[in-house]
Design a protein around this nucleic acid. Structure first.
Lengths: 222, 222
DNA sequence: GATTGTTTCAAACGTCTGTTTTAATCAATA
DNA sequence: TATTGATTAAAACAGACGTTTGAAACAATC
C-alpha cells in the first residue's frame, strides 16, 4: 500500500524465512538447524538469510523474540481471570494460562521447544527475552504468591515457592523424553493442559497455606 | 597384574578419554563437543577415540551410562532413610537424595547437565538409561506416593503427582539460565540442596494429603 | 525507455568436523 | 633376538556448514 515499507515480494520472503526458521529451530535446535534447510522450506535462496537478517544468529534472535511475543498475546498471563477475583482464582488462572502455553500443539508449541533449548544452550538474545518478556510474567506470579503467603515470608522462600509452582508446570515438558520412555502407552500425547493445571492447583494450594502458616508470626496465625 | 586385561597404558588412555569426555560433553553438549578437544584434554591422539570406542556416539553412550551409574551409587535413592521409617520420612529422604544429585558441584554435576541435554536432544542410549537406571528410581517414588495417596487414586493422578514432585526438584536446574537472569545477585550459585529439599517437602506434604482426601472414598475419609 | 536501487540466484569459498589411513612405537612372547 | 599383536602418532580425507561473491532479475523512478 504505502511506499515506506519494502515491497511485498521481499517482505514475503523475509516472513517466509521467519516462519520456516521458527519451525526448524524449534524442532532441530540452533546448532542442528541449517540455513539450507530453512531456505529450502521457505522457498528462498541460501543467500536470503544473510541478505535479510545478517547471519544465522540474528535470524534466530528475531525468531525467538517474535515467537515469545506472539505466545504472550495468545495466552495472557491472567488466564482470563479478572483482577477482582480471589487470589486462589487468580492463581488458578495463572497456572492454567501457563499450562496452555507449554502444552500447545502444532506451531504454538514452538516456543516451548525453543525455550527448553535455551535452558541448555542459552543464546545472546536470552537476556532480552528474560528482561522484557519473562520478567513481567514472573512479577505477576510473585504478586499473587505474596498475597497468598503473607508479608512475613522471606524473599528466598518466595523464590523457592515460585520454583515449586513453575517446576510442576514444566515437568512433563522438560522431561518429556524420560516420561515417554517410562510410560510408552502415553507416547506422543501431550498432557491435557487444563486437567494438569487442575491437579497442580489442587496440589499447590494446601502447600502454599502451609508455607504461609510457617511464616505467620505477630498475631497472623489463626 | 594379570595378563587378561589390556596393559596399563592403554587402559589409562581409555579412562583418561572417558574422564575428559564426560566433562566436555557435560559442558558443551554432544554436538558442540569435538573429539579433538576431548583428546587434547585427555592427552591422547585424535585417532584414540575411534580406536578405543568406535566412534564419538559410542563414547558418549559409555560416558552417560557410567556417569549415571556412579551418581546412583553416590546418592542412593532412599537418601539414608531406613525402610522402617514413616512414609513422610522416606518421602523426605527421596527428595533430599534427588536434590543432592541435581545440585552437586564440580564433576558430580556432570550428570545433571548431561541429562538436561538429553531432555532436549535425546541420544540412542537414553532408552537404556531410562529402563535400567531411571525406572528403579521412579518405582521407588511411586511406591512411596501410593502409600501416601491411598489405594483409590487413579494411575493418571499418580503420574501427575509424581511430576509435581520431580518438577519442583528440577526447576532451578532446568531453568537456571532464566533464574540467573531474573535474579542476577544469585548468579552462579546453586541452591543449597538440603534447604531446597526442606522447602519442597513442606510444600508437598499438605498437597499430597489434599490429593489423598480427594480420592478417599468408601469409608476412608475421616 | 533508461537508470537506479533492491532483491534473487547459482556457484564457490574457507573452515570445521568425524573418521580413516598408514606407518611408527611399544610390550610380550618364542 | 626376532616376531607378533596391540597401541599411538601424524597426516590426510570427505562431507557439511555458514558465509560471500558477482551477476542476473526485478521494481520503481525520472
Amino acid at each position: 500500500m504505502s511506499t515506506e515499507r519494502p515491497p511485498a515480494t521481499s517482505y514475503d520472503t523475509r516472513q517466509r524465512i521467519l516462519d520456516a526458521a521458527s519451525e526448524i529451530f524449534a524442532k532441530e535446535g540452533f546448532a542442528r538447524a541449517t540455513v539450507r534447510d530453512i531456505c529450502q522450506r521457505a522457498g528462498a535462496n541460501i543467500a536470503a538469510v544473510n541478505y535479510h537478517f545478517g547471519d544465522k544468529e540474528k535470524l534466530y534472535g528475531e525468531v525467538l523474540l517474535h515467537t515469545y511475543q506472539a505466545m504472550v498475546e495468545r495466552h495472557p498471563v491472567a488466564g482470563g481471570v479478572r483482577p477482582e477475583a480471589t487470589v486462589d482464582e487468580r492463581f488458578a488462572g495463572f497456572v492454567r494460562a501457563f499450562c496452555r502455553r507449554v502444552y500447545s500443539a502444532g506451531p504454538e508449541a514452538y516456543l516451548s521447544w525453543l525455550m527448553a533449548r535455551e535452558m541448555v544452550e542459552p543464546s545472546p538474545v536470552l537476556d532480552q527475552v528474560v528482561n522484557t518478556l519473562v520478567r513481567p510474567q514472573q512479577q505477576h506470579l510473585v504478586a499473587i504468591l505474596k498475597e497468598m503467603l503473607g508479608p512475613n515470608v522471606p524473599d528466598e522462600v518466595l523464590r523457592s515457592t515460585m520454583g515449586c509452582v513453575i517446576g510442576q508446570i514444566l515437568f512433563f515438558h522438560h522431561c518429556r523424553p524420560v516420561v515417554e520412555r517410562l510410560f510408552p502407552d502415553r507416547q506422543g500425547r501431550n498432557p491435557d493442559p487444563d486437567r494438569l493445571a487442575e491437579v497442580i492447583v489442587t496440589f499447590s494450594l494446601p502447600g502454599l497455606r502451609a508455607v504461609r502458616a510457617k511464616y505467620a508470626r505477630g498475631g497472623e496465625g489463626r
